[in-house]
Amino acid sequence: MGQLLRTSFARELETLQTDTLMLGSMVIQALKESVDALRRRDMDVARHLIKEDEIINRKRFEIEADCLRLIATQQPMAGDLRLIAAVLEISTELERIGDYAKGIGRIILLIGTEVLIKPLVDIPKMCDIATEMLQQSLDAFLHQDLEAARTIPLRDDEVDDLYNRVHRDLIEMILEDTSLIDRCNYLLWAAHNLERAADRVSNICERIIFTVTGEFFEFDMN
């Protein structure tokens, strides 16, 4: 075997990874801002989030186009091929998480500036854990860290427990006073979005495992 070859292709793969991390950062930022804006009922930020989602979508399309270009022009194989396939999936997952942030933005506009039906305690916690998991999964993706990819999704249970608690509290409130249905529902949707965001982190981790091992793996989320 001789010298290292394909340095420009290797650089392009690095750029693809960096772009994916960038998309991830944008999504984390959006999710954090959405819950923060929910707490403050900040209509400006809510509108901003809805608009900013277009940038996230565009970034994801750019990444997809880069993946297709590399497949068409570089004929990637083995680990390179798996990495590109994983980036296609991961960027889709990230874009969807971005949609959840936008969704919370819309919910904020529906709620308006009126006082929230209950103090926000568990929903910000859900957001903290989900964004932390997401950040960790991006680190695991960068370092191709198999161990981390296998353990990060275990925290999904914490998010699920919080969601169940929020769900129970809000349903109880509805049962006590049916006029609160709409306002309870808005918060329930927001919580649900965060619960789904954490689920998608598990999908990202499954893709990291695939990139490293070549095995198709699915976490049992029940």
């Binding site: 075997m1 290292l4 070859l5 290797a10 083995a78 390179d80």
Partner: peptide, 16 residues
């Protein structure tokens, strides 16, 4: 897609 040997991977990905 997923060779077992590192040297196979290096060759088919064009790294060496």
């Amino acid at each position: 897609t997923n060779p077992s040997q590192k040297s196979t991977e290096d060759y088919i990905t064009g790294r060496f």
